[in-house]
Simulated assay, not measured.
Amino acid sequence: MKKIKTALLSYGMSGKVFHAPFLDLHEGFELIGSWERSKKLIQDDYPYTKSYNSIEELLQDDLDLVIVNTPVGTHFEYAKQAILANKNVLVEKAFTTTVAEAEELKNLAKEKNLKLTVFQNRRWDSDFKTVKQILDQDILGEIVEAEIHFDRYNPNLSPKQHKETANSGAGILKDLGPHIIDQALTLFGFPEALTADIRITRDQSLVDDNFDILLYYPRFRVRLKAGFFVREMLPSYILHGKKGSFLKDRGDVQEDELKLGKKPNRDNWGIEPDYKEGLLHTEVNSVVIREKVPTLHGNYFEFFDKLYEAIAENKTEPVTAEDGENVMRVIEASIKSNEEKILIEF
Rank of each mutant, 00 (worst) to 15 (best):
K5W: 12
G15F: 05
K16A: 14
E27Q: 15
G28W: 05
G28F: 07
F29L: 14
F29H: 04
I32L: 04
K39M: 13
K40V: 03
I42Y: 13
Y46N: 11
K50G: 06
I55H: 08
Q60H: 07
D62G: 04
P71K: 02
G73L: 14
T74P: 00
T74S: 12
I83A: 01
I83V: 11
A85Y: 04
N88C: 08
E92R: 00
K93I: 15
F95L: 15
T98W: 10
A100M: 15
K106E: 15
E111L: 06
N113H: 06
R122H: 06
T130P: 09
V131Y: 03
K132F: 04
E147S: 10
I148C: 06
I148L: 07
D151P: 01
P155R: 09
H162M: 07
S168Q: 13
G171A: 13
I172L: 15
D175P: 03
D175C: 10
P178M: 07
I181R: 10
D182M: 04
T186N: 14
A196M: 10
I198E: 10
L206F: 13
V207M: 13
D212W: 07
P218F: 03
V222K: 00
V222L: 02
L224R: 00
K225C: 05
F228N: 13
F229G: 13
V230A: 11
V230P: 01
R231S: 12
R231D: 12
L234K: 13
Y237C: 03
H240T: 13
G244L: 00
F246I: 00
L247H: 11
K259C: 14
K262T: 04
R266N: 07
R266D: 02
G270N: 11
E272T: 12
D274A: 10
K276V: 09
T282M: 01
E283I: 07
N285C: 08
V287T: 12
T295K: 00
G298K: 00
K306S: 11
I311D: 02
K315I: 02
V319T: 10
A321L: 11
E322V: 15
E322A: 12
G324D: 07
V330L: 15
N338T: 02
E339I: 11
I342E: 07
I344Q: 05
